[in-house]
Design a protein around this nucleic acid. Structure first.
Lengths: 347, 347
DNA sequence: CTGAAAGCGCTTACAG
DNA sequence: CTGAAAGCGCTTACAG
């Protein structure tokens, strides 16, 4: 415990060198004799000294903290995502000598983030979720603090890094359509989440593609016959079992062959509703979901799903931020891959 | 944005006073003229200045950070708990001018916590979960940093604050037994979690009580006839649906009347298994759970459950820690209340 | 290769 | 009531 209060000055005195020398030995910056260097490092190791990062930071005008904005009111379906993402961020930060400061925000209250920014407690900030019309994004833009958003934003001046939800959803949908199904429905949650919109676009693109309109044909490309996406197959803003029950009733009556769910919680509700009506999956209806989280780990049938590497997403976001803090130019938008896992539920 | 770089020196110069005066006006410490004080405060408000907390901390040998240890590998059943607990901690910390630094630990790797401690980046630490033979507890004890554990610990020198799981489980169990049921089973998860043990003890106490052995009778109290708790009614370390299926089979064969689940995830598995076997709840079997989380929010029947105020638990833990950091004596063990919510599933 | 000194932005005895 | 100065524990030009 004694060593906890040891200072660079103590070391300098004990070794008969200057503080400058000790500092240089540790940082590796500046010229220093190999023998001196070793002497200092040995002493440090032996006495289990570690420098006061706060003081170091002050001298360098750095905090060695990165801020992480975490929603305090998110839905249980998102929890596994945040857990992994946090883990990735904190591991990468630790590897670079940084600690992670959390600011929990809700839709009504972003005061924790305001404090962290005003108090200059962080060298940069990572947003772990993006919303339509996102208050934290605005705050951070105004503050001038370097930040990256995990997720997509409307403002493309913002550095953002995201799973490729659009193409993931498109490929998943296309995969199902490729099996010959045409009556396909989409159920999604909170429309204020950017991710909901991205998936919706992926879904629509897949439908449009199979209808013969290969995406983004130029103005002079032939205008083929198209079957427009039917609105009654897309349900967004769905939150609870009551809503799901009702929707399932309508979908079954309409002869829906496959239901794509935007998250594993909704998918759980859908499976419950189907089970209660004695509708067999996949024999009578196919079901697919996103995230591949433990939320569905123990269902009777394995559910077709997208798999993302969320810890890696967190790590990449952190690395990106560290580069920005070093003044490097970084790409505005980074999209990470995904894996479509076809399973029993859509066979 | 200009004001972000403003320093106490700028203010002093602009106002023609000393830095000392500015500092005193802000902190309220030391004698200072009311007029001077107002002048300084007005200037600060107008120019939207906020002091550099890092520098302030250095001068006071404080960090204005509290550390929060978060398991990086916890189970989904625990996620709603951690979310609320974090929110409570961070809100209380913010109110006291502190930020929250997270260290994510896993069973194999507590290096993030080691770093935070070695680097003296926090003035105190909150542990958000306790395990049997808990590595973070040991590390923190050795380090000498003030800390409080949310949860119960074996080592009662540790300052701990917890929901009263023992009595909650006891009361829940007693409430069910009071309805006349005798064939009651308990299903629990990870036995390395202290909470599992606490609930187990509560369950056993309730059984013992109804068997006539009022808890803790002295050596000279009459030794009444006792029905010992049957071990085949208690299943711990249950993790997945496979295990649950098997257990449910045995319990039904044995004529079990009620199943108490230690968390909402397990309870979900139990409900699935019962549904699959067409066993009606509560008509044929009663079911009760803990936590009252959104994990079970959308089940067909409302599930009898314990309700804890986890955000308040987080807040109390944080307040306790702040008091310790001020050098105050605090009680070694604090237990918070609970609410037993009897619902349809045990009617 | 090494050191004395100034500085990071605050606080706080110590003197007026 | 107010200020000059030293100090928190580091880093980093600037000189040797």
């Amino acid at each position: 415990m004694e060593d906890k209060k040891m200072t660079i000055d103590d070391i300098a005195r004990a070794l008969g060198v200057s503080k400058t020398t000790v500092s240089r030995a540790m940082s590796g910056k500046g010229r220093i004799g190999e023998a001196t260097r070793k002497k200092v490092l040995d002493y440090i190791a032996e006495h289990n000294y570690s420098p006061n990062v706060i003081a170091k930071g002050l001298a360098q005008s750095k905090t060695y903290n990165i801020g992480m904005v975490l929603p305090g009111d998110y839905h249980i379906a998102e929890l596994p995502f945040f857990q992994k993402c946090m883990l990735g961020i904190s591991r990468e930060a630790a590897a670079a000598g940084y600690d992670v400061l959390v600011s929990m925000v809700t839709r009504e209250d972003i005061s924790q983030l305001e404090r962290a920014v005003a108090n200059r407690k962080t060298d940069g900030v990572i947003l772990t979720r993006t919303m339509v019309d996102d208050a934290p994004v605005k705050l951070l833009k105004d503050s001038g603090v370097p930040f990256v958003a995990v997720g997509s934003t409307e403002d493309d001046a913002v550095v953002q890094i995201d799973n490729d939800h659009l193409n993931a959803c498109k490929e998943l949908t296309a995969g199902i359509l490729a099996q010959g199904f045409r009556k396909i429905a989409l159920i999604g949650g909170d429309m204020n989440l950017m991710v909901t919109g991205m998936r919706l676009r992926g879904f629509k693109t897949a439908l449009a593609d199979i209808n013969g309109r290969a995406g983004g044909g130029g103005p002079d490309s032939p205008r083929p016959d198209t079957r427009p996406v039917k609105d009654d197959c897309i349900w967004l803003g769905v939150e609870d079992s009551g809503a799901v029950e009702k929707i399932i009733g309508q979908l079954l009556a309409a002869g829906t062959e496959c239901i794509v769910c935007m998250d594993d919680y909704l998918c759980g509700l859908v499976l419950n509703a189907l089970q209660q009506r004695q509708v067999a999956v996949p024999e009578q209806v196919k079901v697919a979901s996103f995230y591949d989280s433990t939320l569905l780990a123990d269902r009777m049938i394995p559910v077709t799903s997208i798999r993302f590497d969320v810890e890696e997403l967190g790590r990449k976001a952190c690395r990106q931020l560290l580069r920005m803090m070093d003044g490097e130019e970084v790409e505005r938008r980074t999209l990470l891959g995904y894996e479509v896992c076809m399973r029993r539920s859509t066979e």
